[in-house]
Design a protein around this nucleic acid. Structure first.
Length: 368
RNA sequence: GUGGGUGUAGCUCAGACCGGUUAGAGCACUGGGUUGUGGCCCCAGAGGUCGCGGGUUCAAAUCCCGUCACUCACC
């Protein structure tokens, strides 16, 4: 069964050390979930993801519903067995996909009308359907169906949207049949502090196992992301896990951790890896740059990952330019290792009460 | 050898008939971006004595002559 315990609160910041308990094991927080949209962290095996230090993944329920079909996954023994990942799994509801990949974004009171990006077929994703899908996948943490309005949106629209998301959250909770799957609510409200408060209070009144901040990192200024995160967290229950969805860059993560966020997911480490941008102890490194064509050194001499132990910058650039598939794996391993170490060091520095020092070091690498 | 076709950015080609701002595109290349994921995509940049030589003209990638290269057809 799901539970969350706070092991320690850091003295010099709002950072907290915690542990999430799920039917598939525990997750030490602050934690980062690699994104496995289609039930795979692109290019890596589950063993590799585990070895890089991650304890929980996030899969997309909407994608599983469209392909291969949640019923198929259920028949085959559930998502964990299907993808051979025996640690906790979170699923995203599909609310964000209405924003990110559907041209025919139609929000109705009953739910979201999707036109499949695969075959154009139409689907109505209701709060009840959303929970049914995630429960049949057998995941550890389910996310409520939410509406994620684009940035920028007017405050007037945002108010209506937040009220709808809150109603849907209530319906999601009522639709639950499977106690092993925890359910998180998603706070919306854009960049309007008052709307965020409204959303947070509405969800807290209903009561969830955890709370997420959604609708951030979609084009607003990073300063706004921070301000909204900081101003919203006080309206969420102290003892529940807080999850900042879709964020972010290393500097964003440490900033949010210092405010008291426990859980993160973001495509940045994996997507940037596939596009040749790497994170190092010196900041970003773009492996496709011509300057590395004859560079025999590792990506990061302070990194102990498989890629850095075995391959030169020149070789990785060669693989990238030649579009060899191995480069996707090698760069993804490196970036996820960086994020794994980042979170590990974050937890250690909270334990030792010097998280702010660690955080400012990470921020300086971001180039701010 | 004779006749035709083609030579414009690293590559594939527009532009030529009908001369007129600073010769364009796609790909490649260089740099930047990427925040609940298609490996994409977006932004910016560099790169050309228009095969070479001459002529006509106020003005030539464009018209004329010569020449070279490649290519096709026919002896």
């Amino acid at each position: 069964m799901f539970s969350f315990e706070i092991l320690k609160k850091e003295s010099g910041s709002g950072a907290r050390l915690g542990r999430i308990h799920t039917p598939h094991g525990t997750v030490d927080t602050p934690a980062f979930m690699p994104v496995a949209t289609q039930a795979t962290v692109k290019s890596l095996t589950p063993d590799e993801v585990e070895a890089l230090g991650f304890e929980m993944l996030i899969v997309n329920a909407y994608h599983m519903y469209l392909r291969p079909g949640h019923e198929v996954v259920k028949k085959l023994g559930g998502l964990h067995k299907f993808m051979s990942w025996n640690h906790p799994v979170t699923t995203d509801s599909g609310g964000f996909q209405a924003l990110s990949l559907s041209k025919t974004r139609k929000i109705k009171e009953e739910g979201i009308v999707f036109q499949s990006h695969l075959d154009g077929s139409r689907h109505l994703l209701t709060p009840e359907k959303c929970v049914e899908i995630q429960e049949s996948l057998g995941v550890d943490i389910m996310m409520c169906l939410d509406e994620c309005p684009p940035y920028p949106s007017t405050e007037k629209y945002m108010k209506k949207s937040v009220e709808l998301t809150t109603r849907w959250a209530g319906l999601c909770k009522n639709a639950r049949r499977r106690p092993e799957s925890a359910l998180f609510g998603i706070v919306q409200g854009g960049i309007y502090p008052e709307m965020r408060r409204l959303s947070a209070e509405g969800l807290t009144d209903i009561g969830f196992d955890g709370y997420a901040l959604g609708g951030l990192g979609i084009g607003e200024d990073p300063a706004a992301t921070y301000e909204i995160t900081e101003s919203t967290l006080p309206y969420l229950p102290e003892g529940s896990p807080r999850y900042l969805m879709g964020i972010g860059r290393p500097e964003d993560i440490v900033t949010a951790v210092s405010m008291g966020v426990d859980l993160f997911d973001c495509v940045i480490p994996t997507r940037n890896a596939r596009n040749g941008t790497l994170f190092t102890s010196h900041g970003k490194l773009v492996i496709k740059n011509a300057r590395y064509a004859e560079d025999g050194g590792p990506v990061d001499e302070r990194c102990g990952c498989y890629t850095c132990r075995n391959f030169s910058r020149a070789y990785l650039r060669h693989l990238y330019m030649a579009r060899e598939t191995l480069v996707l794996r090698l760069l993804t391993i490196h970036n996820l290792n960086y994020y794994g170490q980042l979170m590990k060091e974050a937890r250690e520095s909270i334990a030792q009460d010097h998280f702010p020092v660690f955080a400012s070091r990470v921020k300086s690498l971001g180039g701010e």
